[in-house]
Design a binder for these strands. Structure first.
Length: 283
DNA sequence: AAAAGCCCCTGGATGC
DNA sequence: TGCATCCAGGGGCTTT
């Protein structure tokens, strides 16, 4: 599924096209992770001011009578993807896994999500209980230097020092830095030469600095490549990414490390697969 | 209080 | 071909 790069690529693929649109209606399919939290009919008539991203959430800013400051939070879970078609006339009939359609004056935004770990949630405002529950605990934004939550090196180092869990899981938790999912956690630790099992508070400052840049580098590169297309990711305009072609360790267990030719290993951490090179990642 | 485990759900790949 | 098992890019909640 979508990690930060896939979510960002998706955002970029339809943000301009939906901006300013008036909502005509909405349709729900099977239940997603959480209920929408509002009647779909209540959305009719409001406007979409723009699309932001916070971690792996997409935020549609809404406006209209009684709707100013409201948000629609979208999450793609493990298997979700969005499509945006310019006209309802070009919209295929809703399939089994099409669980949300937002019909607007500029086109239709559709969420397809076979596993239904994804979500579409209405929040009355950024400070609402709903928004706080989902977004309040999120860490720093690794790529967005304009954000109030921008990635700060010193805060990152302090955060690492305060945690005893393995670094891979600290990255995945998203409370220190957001958007680093299972693929990019393995990839950035490889670049920084850090063993995924190393306790976060045991990482030296020089290594932490390497990791800080590695996270930004690997995520930025993945965004440029259009994301990773492992199973079913494609952006809202149907383009697939190709970052997976350049993965250094992810999914390469038993194969030769691209840097030193040692055999890439895989272990399990918190029910997720981790990949690393035992020679390049000793710290 | 932090960390580790547990689940939500479906589909594709693999093995017998 | 059929059936069982395992695995998957997330993350909130419950239990240690």
């Amino acid at each position: 599924m979508p990690e930060l790069p896939e979510v960002e690529v998706t955002r970029q693929s339809f943000a301009d096209r939906i901006q300013g649109a008036r909502v005509l209606s909405a349709r729900l399919g099977k239940p997603l992770r959480w209920p929408l939290g509002i009647e779909t009919s209540q959305l009719t008539g409001c406007h979409v001011l723009g699309v932001r991203r916070r971690g792996k959430y997409l935020l549609l800013d809404l406006a209209g009578p009684g709707m100013d400051g409201a948000l629609l939070l979208l999450h793609l879970g493990m298997s979700g993807s969005l499509s945006f078609v310019n006209s309802a006339n070009n919209l295929p009939a809703a399939g089994t896994h099409d669980h949300f359609d937002l019909f607007t004056s500029r086109g239709v935004l559709r969420l397809n999500d076979p596993r239904r770990f994804g979500a579409v949630v209405f929040a009355a405002g950024q400070g609402s209980v709903t928004a706080q529950k989902l977004l309040g605990h999120l860490g720093m934004e690794p790529l967005d230097d304009e954000s109030p939550d921008r990635f700060d090196l010193d805060a990152f180092c302090v955060g690492l020092k305060s945690r005893t869990a393995p670094i891979k899981q600290v990255l995945l938790a998203g409370e220190l830095v957001v958007g680093v999912g299972n693929i990019y956690a393995s990839e950035s630790l490889f670049i920084a030469g850090i063993r995924p099992t190393t306790k976060a508070n045991a990482i030296s400052r020089p290594r932490a600095i390497l990791l800080f840049s590695a996270i930004r580098e690997v995520l930025a590169r993945a965004v440029q490549a259009g994301g990773s297309t492992l199973k079913d990711f494609s952006s809202a305009d149907g383009k697939t990414g190709y970052f997976q072609l350049q993965a250094a360790v992810y999914g390469r267990a038993g194969e030769a490390c691209r840097r030193c030719a040692a055999t890439v290993k895989t272990i399990r951490q918190g029910q997720r697969a981790t990949f690393f090179c035992p020679v390049c990642q000793k710290k």
